[in-house]
Structures are given as C-alpha cells and as structure tokens.
C-alpha cells in the first residue's frame, strides 16, 4: 500500500506536484494517468525516496521507504529504461543489485529468464534498444519479488508481445495480493490493465476512482433515426431528456439508454432505421478531465504553417 499525504514538490519556483493526496491499495492494479510533464515520475521518485518532498509525506506499507531494511523486497521500481551503467552487462547489473540484499544468483537467472533476456545477458547494456532496456528495468524491479511494484511507463518501446506480457504481469502480481502502481500517458493502455485510476494534471490529482466510474458517470447518448421521428420525439419528451435534431430523420437523445428508447418506439409503433448508442470512451473522459491541465498543447498544424 502507498499513502501520499499532501505531497508537494517544487523545483525553483515551479510546482511540479501540488498537494497530492492519494492511496494506492494492494491487491489491485492502480493506473497513474496524466499528460507528459504532469508530475507522474516526480511523484514516483518521491515514493521511493530519490526525490525529497518539499512538503507532505509518502509512506510505503506504512513506513518511509528511505528507512527500509529490505528495499528490493519491499518495492520493485522501474523509473526509466536505462538506469544501468552502459558498459555493464545485464548479468553484472543484476548480480550487483542482488548482492546488495544478499539475494542468490539463481534469482538473477530467474528474472533474466522471465523477461526474455537470457540470450543477451552478456551483451553490454549500452547497445540495447529501448524495449530491451525496458525489459531489463522490469527484471530489476522483479528481482526482490517485491510487495509493491512501481512501474513508470513500462510499455514504452515494447513490442505488442511485450505490452501484453507487462499487462499480464501486472494483473498476476495484483492477484497475488501485491500493490501495483503503473503510470502511463495513454488512457487506452490503462483501460486494459488498471482496476483503479488516479489522474494527475499539472501536479494536481484530478480524479481518483475505480475505472468503471470513468465510463459510467456520463449520461447515455444515442443516435436515433426514423421516418416518423417527430412521433418518437414527442413520445420521448420528458424530464431530463434532451433531444437534438441532427438532420431530417435523425436525432441525438441524451438521457434514456437505447433499450428505453427502443421500447418506447415499439409502444408508439414507430419503425426505427437506426438506434446507435454513442460510446463515451475512457479516452474522451480523460481528455475532458485534463483539457485544461495539459502542460504542452499542440496547436493545429495548419495554423502554425507547418514550420518555417
């Protein structure tokens, strides 16, 4: 479990993490979602004691991680793909990491095996692709079989097979009762992995809720078409129902779900040519939530003239 209390980090005059309070529960995958530069990495660095909070505090399993006697077993961390000396081999790096905690060399070979790096264990890390560096980072995180797994953008640079593997790994670790905290700037990625979402924008926590709520809190919207659309509109008109004519035979209904609309059409004997629920995706919800909190806006290519 990770508990952050009014966590704040300032660099110079710039507030990177702003009064963030949240709890990451064990036994589930918690997604940490936010645009680039929102403060995800800084927050993760503060959790594992690499960066000191300007104010506030964060506890891992009820303790300050900087005082941990069993750091690798307590928290497995992937912060950036290449946190390894370029001239080292994966084997030397992992053996050195294992040695700090007195973990056996057999464990090094286990994590090399599960991350698919056994064949390159004697190659220098400097020549690794982003994906291979990422695998080595994940191998390092898994080394101590940690209670808490913190992964910063773990699927960056991975091929589809690797992405699926990370997803399975996260789900499996959570199923074993561990705490899994994964950051991403892609909602689509989180939608497939996380049970719970914490959304951050410009250093502030914008939302903290089960992933289902991100889809369900919006009202249903349905596109309906019929030759007798006027009849149906009269039938639907009522409390909280919004109707918006989109063309001669079509209308956008906000409020009742498509089942209710279909039933009403049957009652009034209206033949429908189209009944289409508009899916409000997680992506839409995320964009809406962070629209004002995006650090770096991209402007329309046409407006900027496409460069000089």
């Amino acid at each position: 479990m990770i508990q952050a209390q009014q966590l704040t980090k300032k660099y110079g005059g710039k507030t990177v993490v702003d009064n963030a309070s949240f709890t990451v529960q064990q036994g589930m995958v918690t997604g940490f979602l936010g645009p680039n530069g929102a403060g995800k990495s800084t927050t993760m660095r503060m959790i594992v004691g690499l960066a000191a909070p300007t104010s506030g505090e964060v506890l891992v399993n009820g303790r300050d991680f900087k005082k941990s006697r069993h750091p690798l077993t307590e928290v497995g961390t992937l912060l950036e793909a290449k946190s390894v000396h370029k001239s080292l081999t994966p084997l030397a790096h992992l053996r050195a990491m294992a040695a700090t905690a007195g973990l056996p060399v057999s464990r090094v070979h286990e994590v090399l095996e599960v991350t698919g790096l056994s064949s390159v264990q004697r190659k220098k890390v400097g020549g690794f692709s982003l994906g291979m560096g990422q695998r080595l980072g994940i191998a390092t995180a898994l080394l101590g079989d940690p209670q808490v797994l913190i992964l910063d953008e773990p699927v960056n640079g991975l091929d589809p097979e690797g992405v699926a593997w990370v997803r399975n790994l996260a789900r499996q670790q959570a199923a074993e009762g561990k705490t899994v905290f994964i950051s991403s700037h892609l909602m689509s990625e989180m939608a497939q992995t996380a049970d719970h979402l914490i959304v951050i924008g410009r250093g502030r926590i914008m939302a903290d809720a089960p992933i289902s709520e991100f889809i369900d809190n919006g009202l249903d919207q349905t596109i309906v078409r019929s030759a007798d659309i006027e009849v149906l509109m009269n039938a639907l008109n009522g409390d909280g129902v919004q109707l918006r004519r989109i063309d001669e035979h079509g209308v956008e209904v906000t409020g009742p779900d498509s089942v209710t609309i279909g039933r009403r059409a049957l009652e009034y004997g209206v033949v429908l040519s189209e009944l289409r629920p508009l899916q409000r995706t997680l992506e839409d919800a995320y964009m809406e939530l962070t629209r004002d909190a995006v650090e770096y806006h991209s402007s329309n290519v046409a407006e900027t003239g496409g460069g000089k």
């Binding site: 069993h70 080292l88 790096h93 050195a96 700090t100 973990l103 499996q172």
Partner: peptide, 28 residues
C-alpha cells in the same frame, strides 16, 4: 516471456552486501 515467478527469499540490505555489489560493478 513466461509468467510464473517463484518467490524470492527476503533480502536484507547490509554494508557488506553493498560493498559486494559495488565490487561486482567496479571490476566489470
């Protein structure tokens, strides 16, 4: 990549361990 991981022994960090770790990297 396979999915099953055995449980690792509980690793306690010590000065001796860090010294060994530093030596491994230094001489590599």
């Amino acid at each position: 990549m396979s999915e099953k991981l055995a449980t690792a022994p509980r690793g306690k960090v010590s000065l001796f361990g860090v010294l060994r770790s530093e030596s491994i990297r230094f001489f590599s």
